[in-house]
């Protein structure tokens, strides 16, 4: 999947390094996201998955390497250029990030009001169309506080696709949902991807759901891509890390314990 016919990959991450406050979080990451595909980035909590999405969106600058979106190097863009690129992106935040002072309807209408001059009747039709796509047309009058977690995420999804973006990024779309909502979101992601012809990037640590919809999966661990392949490849993988992650084993290459001193010494009060 590393071959690159010009324009084949909508997003490319090239030898990317990034760290907060000097501590490197990513070290030389390479990934490609072909047009029209659903690609997943998986890894443990704190492995820097959300940070990768923020790098793609140009909210932070890489220390080394680059991210290209539709051929443009993100961190070399002016502020205006980054805003132009972001208009091609939709992002579903981990906790929805709905505007709490606006109704569901106004949340979905927000990007349209900001970026288009559509008359009110068109906005009305478009909002209801998007809400209908996520099955929440009937909830358009509610405030975000009145929604369940799964509904809030679907509204956020409707908002993310309000302007028909080329790329939709999903940050932990399954985390904290009941099994039914999870299935609904799963179906939505795949259906929207295929119906709208978008490119989807899913960040997740839920193996089963992610494997069921992804075309290709990257595993990140210790700041690098530890493994990659189609879900079938990875299911069969004998790499110890992948095996541990896919089968949810407690100990393996990724230790259960955070790095600590000797336990016995600590109990005896000998450790500072």
């Amino acid at each position: 999947m590393t071959q690159n016919i010009v324009g084949h990959n909508l997003v490319e991450i090239d030898n990317l390094s990034f760290g907060y406050k000097g501590r490197l979080l990513h070290q030389g990451i390479n990934m490609v996201f072909p047009r029209g595909k659903v690609v997943a980035i998986m890894g443990g909590s704190g492995s820097g998955k959300t940070t990768l999405l923020r790098l793609i969106g140009g909210q932070i600058r890489p220390a080394k390497g680059e991210v290209r979106v539709d051929g443009h190097v993100v961190h070399q863009q002016s502020r205006e250029g980054i805003y132009q690129l972001r208009r091609k992106m939709g992002m579903l935040f981990q906790h929805g990030a709905l505007f709490t002072d606006l109704s569901v309807y106004e949340n979905v209408a927000f990007p349209m009001r900001e970026h288009t001059d559509f008359p009110e009747t068109i906005i009305h039709d478009l909002v209801l169309l998007k809400l209908h796509a996520v099955g929440l047309r009937g909830a358009h009058k509610l405030k975000p506080a009145e929604l369940s977690g799964g509904m809030a995420r679907r509204v956020a999804l409707a908002r993310a696709i309000a302007l028909d973006p080329d790329i939709v990024m999903y940050d932990e779309p399954f985390a904290g949902l009941d099994p039914i909502s999870m299935g609904v979101i799963c179906d939505l992601i795949r259906t929207l991807n295929d119906a709208l012809g978008t490119t989807s990037i899913i960040v997740s640590h839920d193996v089963k759901e992610t494997f069921s919809i992804a075309d290709y999966v990257y595993f990140v661990a210790n700041g690098t891509v530890a493994a990659e392949g189609t879900p079938d490849d990875l299911n069969k993988s004998t790499l110890p890390f992948v095996h541990q992650f896919v089968h949810g084993e407690k100990d393996g290459p990724v230790p259960f314990h955070y790095v600590a001193g000797d336990y016995k010494q600590a109990l005896l009060g000998l450790e500072a």
């Binding site: 969106g57 909210q59 980054i82 805003y83 132009q84 972001r86 208009r87 992106m89 992002m91 935040f93 981990q94 906790h95 990030a97 709905l98 505007f99 709490t100 927000f110 990007p111 900001e114 970026h115």
Partner: peptide, 22 residues
């Protein structure tokens, strides 16, 4: 502060809307 903590400002940024002007 809450808009920031709940990533509403970040979401706005990602929608190419400047939280400072909006």
């Amino acid at each position: 502060g809450l808009m920031k903590a709940t990533e509403q400002l970040s979401a706005m940024e990602m929608m190419a809307v400047s939280p400072i002007s909006r």
